[in-house]
């Protein structure tokens, strides 16, 4: 079994998948179904001019929110829809897409016992509004996204690297950052070794 996978995997080179999750050629994919519910309706009603797309996959709901309106939408989710808990905030990199990054918010509501995922497409040169005013917990998570993807969050209280050293160059979780790649200069200067590998 392992051998077969090895063959499929190739030589361990950085994966260069074709088209992110929107790849239409995938085998027997249960497509994302459109999702409509009370949450989506009230959201559409409150933000009439905003282009919101809602999908459902494997029973999990997600809403695609444009970059400009993430802060008001987040406020709305927290105060009106009672999604008071930000479980997770992360991002994914899709270099082939027009807007390269997707920032992903996993929300949870104690009252409804329900999860919803917000996705915000962000271009490489764009930045988006920080949601720290809404959920304090976003502080470190946004820092991590900045650290790993280089996505800039406006009005973040302390946006700097969190897991990597402050002086590190490059953003490791971007798809064009190879798995063997590293900030050789930093490693040599600070660890006094030729290479981390």
């Amino acid at each position: 079994m392992a051998d077969e996978q090895k063959k499929e995997e190739g030589a361990g080179a950085p994966a260069a998948p074709a088209g992110g999750h929107a790849n239409p050629a995938a085998p027997a994919a249960p497509a994302m179904e459109p999702w409509d519910s009370e949450v989506v309706q009230s959201l559409r009603k409150s933000f009439p001019g905003v282009d919101l797309e809602a999908f459902s996959f494997r029973g999990q709901n997600l809403i695609i929110v444009p970059r400009e309106s993430i802060l008001p939408v987040a406020h709305f989710f927290k105060s009106e829809l009672k999604f008071d808990f930000l479980s997770d905030l992360t991002a994914a990199d899709y270099p082939q897409k027009e807007k390269r990054f997707e920032v992903v918010y996993q929300l949870y509501s104690f009252k409804r016992n329900e999860r919803v995922r917000l996705k915000v497409p962000v271009g490489e040169t764009e930045s988006l509004e920080s949601v720290v005013p809404v959920w304090i917990t976003a502080d470190w998570m946004e820092r991590e996204v900045y650290d790993m993807f280089g996505i800039h969050f406006d009005h973040h209280p302390n946006l700097k690297r969190i897991l990597l050293p402050d002086e590190w160059q490059g953003f490791p979780l971007r798809k064009d950052y190879g798995i063997l790649q590293q900030d050789v200069k930093w490693v040599q200067e600070n660890l006094h070794i030729q290479s981390g590998q």
Partner: peptide, 21 residues
């Protein structure tokens, strides 16, 4: 506490993105 896995698949044998919460 809450240990979350956010997995994005592109249909290949390797995960496109794995996020651990």
């Amino acid at each position: 506490g809450e240990l979350g896995y956010y997995i994005v698949s592109d249909g290949s044998t390797q995960p496109y993105r794995v996020r651990v919460r």
